[in-house]
Nucleic acid binder design. Structure first.
Lengths: 186, 186
DNA sequence: CGTTGCTTTGAGAGCTCTCAAAAGGCGTGG
DNA sequence: CCACGCCTTTTGAGAGCTCTCAAAGCAACG
C-alpha cells in the first residue's frame, strides 16, 4: 500500500482526473470540495485519520481533494473485480448517510445551529475528548457550512460569550456546556 | 419481488424503523427526507421510475420515505451475504455523488440558481423531453432546495416572465431557453 | 356552486453577506 | 529576545436576499 505525504494545501486529486484508487487518512485532515465557475466553494466533507475517501461513481473524480494541514495518506488500488466490494459498500453507505444528514444542516438550519452541528460532529469523531484541535481554518469551516467566514467567526464569539465553549487558542476548542450545544442541533 | 402500491402522501418507511429491503420505483415518485424537532423538513432526494432507494448504513432507516403521488414500488430483500453487493456499490456511489453535488446547491447557490439546478436535473432525468410534468408540490420543491415555498413560487414566476420557462399548467413546465437555464447553474 | 388545498403576490422584518478595518498569532530575521 | 511582516481572525456597519405573515387567486372535486 503506497503511502504519500501531502503538504498543507496541496492537491491529492482534482475534479475530472482519473479515479484509480481509494485513500485512507493516516494523519492530518483532508477536505473534499467542489467549485462553482465564479469560485464559490462547497466542502462536502472533512476526512480525519482512519477514514476512507475517494469514492466515485465512475472512473473520473467529481470532486477535489486537498490536504488541510500536513497529511499522510495510504492509497489502495481498487479494480472493479476486486474482492473488496463487499467491504466497500458499508463505507460508501456510511458516506451517503453522512452527506444526506449534512443536507439537512445546509438546507434547514441557521448559522448557530450549523456551527453547533459541526462542533458536535467533530467532537464525536475525535473520540469524545473534551478538548478539540481543529485542523481547518474558519474559511474552511465556512465553506463546509455554507456560511461566510465572518459569520462563522461571529458565532464562535457568541458561543464563547455564552459560556458554551472555551477557546484555548484560535483552533483549540473545549466544550463547557455539552448539553447546550447538543440542544442547538435539535 | 413483492410489489406495493402507495397512495399519495403515504409512508413507505420511517426513520428509526428496521431497514430490511431496497426499493425500486415502478411508477410515481418518492421523497426521502429528514425532520428537525420543530418540524423543519429537508428532502434529500426525489426518486423517479427505475431508481433504487432505501440504502442505509446499518439496519435502521435514518430517513423517511413517502409517496409523492400515487406510486408503485418493488421491494428487494437484501441480506449482507447476498451476491448483490457488487451491483449495489455502483448505485450507492451514484447516490453519494448526487448527494454531494446537492450540497453545493444548498450551501453556495442562491434561490434562482437552486431552482434552475432543480429543473435541469429533473429534465435530464426524465429523458430530455422538452415538457416536464412535476409530480411534487411547490412545498416539496422548497424543502428539497432549502427555500420557502413562497420563494420557489416567486422564482418560477420570474423565470416565466423572463421567457426562460413556460407553465402549461401549475406543474407542467416547458423549457423555452435551455441555454439560459443551464447558465444559471454555472 | 361551495369547499378545500395549492399557488401566487404583497409588505415588512430579520438573518446573513459584503466591504472594510482593526486585532491577534506566528515565523523569520535582525 | 524583540521587531517586522504576513496571514488568520475578529469586529463593525450597511446592504440585500430570503423569510414570515397575510390575503387573494385558482383549480379540482363533490
Amino acid at each position: 500500500m503506497p503511502s504519500a505525504f501531502h503538504a498543507a494545501g496541496s492537491e491529492i486529486f482534482s475534479q475530472g482526473s482519473e479515479a484509480r484508487s481509494l485513500y485512507i487518512v493516516k494523519f492530518g485532515c483532508v477536505r473534499i470540495y467542489r467549485l462553482l465557475a465564479d469560485g464559490r466553494r462547497q466542502i462536502s466533507a472533512f476526512h480525519l485519520p482512519g477514514e476512507v475517501f475517494g469514492f466515485e461513481a465512475d472512473d473520473r473524480h467529481h470532486f477535489f481533494a486537498e490536504a488541510v494541514g500536513a497529511t499522510c495518506t495510504l492509497s489502495i488500488r481498487v479494480s472493479a473485480t476486486t474482492e473488496l466490494s463487499r467491504e466497500l459498500l458499508p463505507l460508501a453507505l456510511r458516506g451517503l448517510v453522512r452527506a444526506q444528514e449534512h443536507l439537512l444542516v445546509l438546507g434547514r438550519q441557521n448559522a448557530p445551529e450549523r456551527v453547533a452541528a459541526f462542533l458536535v460532529d467533530m467532537f464525536e469523531r475525535q473520540g469524545g475528548l473534551d478538548r478539540l484541535e481543529l485542523p481547518m481554518s474558519r474559511t474552511d469551516i465556512a465553506d463546509y457550512l455554507g456560511l461566510s467566514l465572518e459569520t462563522v467567526s461571529r458565532v464562535f464569539t457568541k458561543l464563547r460569550e455564552r459560556g458554551i465553549i472555551r477557546l484555548l487558542s484560535l483552533r483549540t476548542v473545549e466544550i463547557a456546556k455539552w448539553r447546550s450545544l447538543a440542544e442547538m442541533c435539535e
